[in-house]
Design a binder for these strands. Structure first.
Length: 651
RNA sequence: GCCGGCGUAGCUCAGUCGGCAGAGCAGCGCACUCGUAAUGCGCAGGUCAUCGGUUCGAUUCCGAUCGCCGGCUCCA
């Protein structure tokens, strides 16, 4: 048989050669690192005999497929260890996940996370036994017999579903442990050396809250102890940066308990941070042609019936009685902006009309999903609604994407773009006229293409009311977070009968786009805290400069330096406490103040300050004027976006 | 909401197999006037999350409630 390699070369092998044979024939090193292979596109165990001509890829930990096989094999290893320690355990599913694996199990008498070291030790033992993973293809009836003998009720459920798909299933065994599994797997348990169990959690069988809850054990596995250590280090680094730890520690916000779960109380320093963001946001939006508006927090339930939220968003809304009516605490800003759009008859000359508001909304979230600033019950959306004509749509989309990227670049985030489109086989599910979808979806793709942006298209991920562009932001640790979102809405304009008068004198349906660039101010600040590990850039630092007179003899000099910095609008404070200079520096460092200015006898005498930068240490003495100039520069607010719209014309 | 874990001073955590509640840091007072990440001494600080039960006695054991943390398909 003729085997083609990824580099274009090819070679003749006897029929029935295995992937491992081929890897060996290429190099010992590759054979050692090989985990699984792909032959003619399908992933296979290295020990599988290959049939017929084809193209081969030997997959190692460097490849997605190799990593997945290693992780998935580790989940089997986990399961077999749990079975040895807790006989009678029944198994659910145990897939590989983004950076590790888990297994959902019903473990009789499971003591909780205290059992993890025990299980890990048992896994090490099974790894040392170097048991081969053996694949077997059996008729479904045979599999059913095997699993019902073992009392594996969850596996039987899975088998029942697989019946529809085919007549046979595959089983993988190592030692006396057998699992229903598609594979492929690494050759033997000995390949799994560098793993660690991380946590235990409850998980509903098949993710459905009506089902029983199983015990989920999470773990991770790598191909070297160094890579495992690096991953553990990353987890620790993430823990250190956790905004739920840093936020209260830096005096930014407080939440929970008396204040109510999921509600954020911004402390003075957090409020400064917030205000700086709001100021940049407002100035940038005005420059980009948005009109800022402000809408009330409550509105009659009627409004929300018209918008449709009362039907499909009810369980997230807070209702309250007012006079004889029912009112709603707003969960979204759009209906408010629609009232503003409808406040008078609109001409095509006014379009595109871009309304924006930092609108605080309240949504009921189940108590268990609340999470620091990231998932809360009250938050401020940097909401914007663009009302435009079909013709204007393409350039509006580009403007919004560019605007979103401006913010991400300003904060140093990376990003990746996702375009969510409708599912063509299920158009009945969507709001609006299919013609609109056909017009808009290609226009969204074209707008991104024209800008030269890379993006991933996901069919069927659109909201029922319209297609959308989601931008995920990547922080300093390489983690992705929900970022800007741009959503078309074919539902609301018709529900509210939003129209404009065109040049032909007739009324036309307006196009509407929702967009949020920060998403929520709370979540975005959470991202910023973790991204910067609390070391905010100068313009965001709640306190920018601390002035530290060495002794009481320099208090006067220090006060005049303070005045010089205050005059520049810098946020500064003087620390005249009767503490050693070391103590006061330590306090300022812990507070992550970017600049510390020490003033001793020498500096007081010649009108200088000794500059110390947070995290960097003493930078030496410079004149007060120089210090003011350089710190003012370092704390300057970011430039507004390029371009912008003509603001001063009456339409 | 559900499963599991946790809740002791402002913070970080000891401790009590049921018998007067402990430390460090922070706070306050006094002294110290100092050269780049913790000066010394002293004082104060608690309904041991809340409510109920068992007990002569509960912070400890049991139950409920509240809050926080890890999670709740990334599909054999």
């Amino acid at each position: 048989m003729r085997v083609l390699f990824p580099d274009g070369g090819s070679r003749e092998y006897p029929e029935g050669t295995t992937g491992l044979d081929i890897a060996r024939s290429i190099s010992q090193g590759l054979a050692k690192r090989a985990l699984v292979c792909r032959y003619n596109g399908s992933a296979l165990d290295l020990g599988r005999q290959l049939e017929g001509d084809g193209s081969i890829e030997i997959l190692t930990f460097e490849d997605d497929g190799g990593r997945e096989a290693l992780r998935h094999s580790a989940s089997h290893l986990l399961a077999s260890a749990v079975r040895r320690l807790f006989p009678g355990t029944r198994f659910g599913i145990g897939p590989a996940i983004e950076d590790g694996f888990y297994y959902d199990m019903d473990i009789p008498g499971f003591p909780g996370s205290s059992a993890l070291p025990l299980i890990e030790a048992e896994m090490k033992r099974i790894s040392a036994e170097d048991l081969p993973f053996v694949r077997r293809e059996v008729p479904i009836a045979e599999a059913r017999r095997i699993f019902s003998e073992m009392g594996e009720t969850y596996k039987l459920e899975l088998l029942a579903e697989l019946e529809a798909a085919g007549e046979t299933v595959t089983l993988y065994s190592h030692g006396d442990f057998t699992d229903l599994c598609r594979g492929p797997h690494v050759p033997s348990t000995g390949v799994l050396k560098h793993f660690s169990l991380l946590s235990v959690a409850g998980a509903y069988w098949r993710g459905d809250e009506h089902n029983v809850m199983l015990t989920r054990v999470y773990g991770t596995v790598f191909d070297s102890s160094a890579a495992l250590a690096a991953h553990i280090h990353l987890l620790e680094e993430a823990r250190k940066r956790d905004h739920r730890r840093l936020g209260p520690e830096l005096g930014l916000f407080s939440t929970g308990n008396e204040g109510g779960p999921g509600l954020i109380y911004w402390l003075p320093d957090g409020t400064i941070l917030r205000e700086e963001l709001e100021n940049l946001w407002k100035a940038a939006h005005r420059k980009m042609g948005y009109k800022l508006v402000s809408t009330p927090h409550i509105a009659p339930a009627e409004l929300w019936k018209t918008s449709g939220h009362c039907d499909y968003y009810r369980e997230n809304m807070y209702f309250m009685p007012v006079d004889d009516c029912e009112y709603v605490l707003k969960p979204m800003n759009c209906p408010g902006h629609i009232i503003i759009f409808k406040s008078h008859k609109r001409s095509y000359r006014e379009l595109p009309l871009r309304l924006a508001e930092l609108g605080t909304v309240y949504r009921y979230e189940k108590s268990g999903v609340l999470h620091g600033l990231m998932r809360v019950r009250g938050f401020t959306v940097d909401d914007g609604h663009i009302f435009c004509t079909p013709d204007q749509m393409g350039s509006e989309i580009q403007d919004v994407v560019r605007f979103a990227l401006y913010f991400l670049k300003t904060f140093g985030f990376g990003y990746s773009i996702e375009l969510s489109l409708s599912d063509p086989s299920n158009m009945g599910h969507y709001a609006g006229d299919p013609g609109q979808w056909q017009l808009v979806e290609p226009a969204l793709a074209k707008a991104l293409d024209d800008m030269g942006e890379q993006y991933k298209t996901v069919k069927g991920e659109a909201a029922f009311y319209g297609p959308k562009i989601d931008i995920k932001l990547r922080d300093a640790l390489g983690r992705y977070w929900q970022g800007p979102t741009i959503q078309f809405d074919f539902n609301i304009p018709s529900r509210f009968d939003l129209t404009y008068t065109a040049p032909d004198g007739a009324e036309h349906r307006v196009f509407m786009v929702h967009r949020a660039l920060f998403g929520s101010l709370e979540r975005f600040i959470g991202n910023l805290i973790e991204h910067f590990a609390g070391n905010f850039p100068g313009w965001l630092a709640p306190l920018q400069v601390v002035i530290l007179p060495l002794t009481a003899a320099q208090h006067e000099a220090a006060l005049s330096v303070l005045k010089a910095f205050e005059a520049e609008g810098l946020r500064c404070a003087i620390d005249r406490r009767s503490e050693t200079i070391g103590y006061r520096i330590r306090e300022a460092e812990k507070r992550k103040v970017p600049f510390m200015l020490v003033i001793g006898e020498r500096e007081a005498a010649d009108g200088s300050v000794a500059v110390r930068r947070h995290g960097e240490g003493d930078k030496g003495a410079v004149s007060v004027e120089e210090a003011v100039a350089s710190i003012r520069e370092a704390c300057r607010r970011p430039a507004l976006p390029d371009g912008g719209k003509l603001q001063s014309e009456i339409p």
